[in-house]
Simulated assay, not measured.
Amino acid sequence: MEQVEAVVIGGGQSGLAAAHALVRAGLKPVVLEASGRAAGSWPRYYDSLTPFSPARFSALPGIPFGGDPDRYPHRDEVVAYLTAYADRLHADIRTGQRVISVRADGAGFAVELEGGGQLWARAVVGASGGFGRPHRPDLPGLETFAGQVLHAADYRSPAPFAGQRVVVVGAGNSAVQIAAELARDSRTSLATRAPVKFARQHLLGKDLHFWLTRTGLDTAPLGRLLKTPPAPPVLDDGRYRAVLAAGAPDRRPMFARLAGDRVMWADGTTERLDVLILATCYRPHLPYLAGLDGALDPAGHPHHCGGASSAHPGLAFVGLEWQCSLSSNTLRGVGRDAARAARRLAAHLARA
């Protein structure tokens, strides 16, 4: 069994930030990425996606995002940035390496790979995000719905749905963006439990992220102070308010149920539905920790305090939503949490 200092599980933005922080802390991490390249989930996001923060606020530690710092880079630009970032890291990054289990083994952890490979590490960082675990809410009639059901994780472009009747479930950024572009060529509704909340993209000529950074709200430990962190509003420069106001898509209260190939709305009306798209977020994707006592709760969420495992001192997490702040699982914020986790792991290994 190969022995290493630290294993980082996941080679996306969280894993790369973790590797950078571990190297700066004097450790030699091995990054294990299941896919064929170190870009995380970004290559699989929908085609039109752009980050919600400008390039100047969309960089990982150590390497700025190139080009106009005030532009909103496209998904493919982020993929290219992450790939280049990985190439410049002084870390052992191994692609095509899917971790299937982590178990306690003496003063460290045994990490088992798909195909039978194994590593022994003194420390482990779970940085696999949530894209592999889309949340599918228990909606009445969903299991027997005769139409097409997909999650936003499976959505790429509006072309396959032209001319169809589509309902998008969700009130977040992705839900509104997907519904708006679908509505150009299909009859689309946005179904939400409450009215969509918007936040202005620009205030006094500056992007909202400038003010979040300047005021310190971006780094405030809100996730640890709030019992139930609020859902983030939809960031908008005015275009999404406009399309909803114009009814393309129209926003409706959440439907009552699905039956056969039909949807029953809250007012009792029914209609045929071709496609249901669930833009209903994600949950931490940490299946490899299922056999590690105390690492996860019954729902698969990690027991942690600010990214440090509550059960295993040599285990840490990076990239969890609200891990330490409102930006913990974003390009702009993951580096801060990674540095915090690396310092704790380095201190633990020094004491061990």
Rank of each mutant, 00 (worst) to 15 (best):
I9F: 11
L16V: 10
K28Q: 15
S48Q: 09
A55K: 11
A55L: 08
R56F: 01
S58Y: 04
P61H: 00
P64T: 00
P69E: 07
V78Q: 02
V79G: 10
A84L: 09
Y85C: 01
A86L: 08
R103Q: 11
V111H: 07
E114T: 05
L119F: 04
P134D: 04
P134A: 04
H135E: 08
P140G: 09
L142I: 15
E143A: 14
T144E: 12
A159C: 14
P160V: 02
Q164A: 13
V166Y: 10
V167G: 12
N173W: 00
Q177A: 09
E181P: 02
T188I: 07
S189L: 15
F198Y: 07
R200F: 06
H202K: 03
F210R: 07
P230K: 01
A231H: 14
D236E: 06
A246D: 15
A248Q: 13
R251M: 11
R257N: 07
L258C: 02
D267L: 10
T270C: 00
L273W: 10
V275E: 05
L276P: 07
A279N: 10
P284V: 00
P287E: 00
D293G: 11
D297G: 09
P298S: 08
G306V: 06
G307T: 13
A308T: 08
A308I: 07
G314K: 11
W322I: 13
R340A: 07
A342F: 08
R343V: 11
A346K: 10
L349C: 11
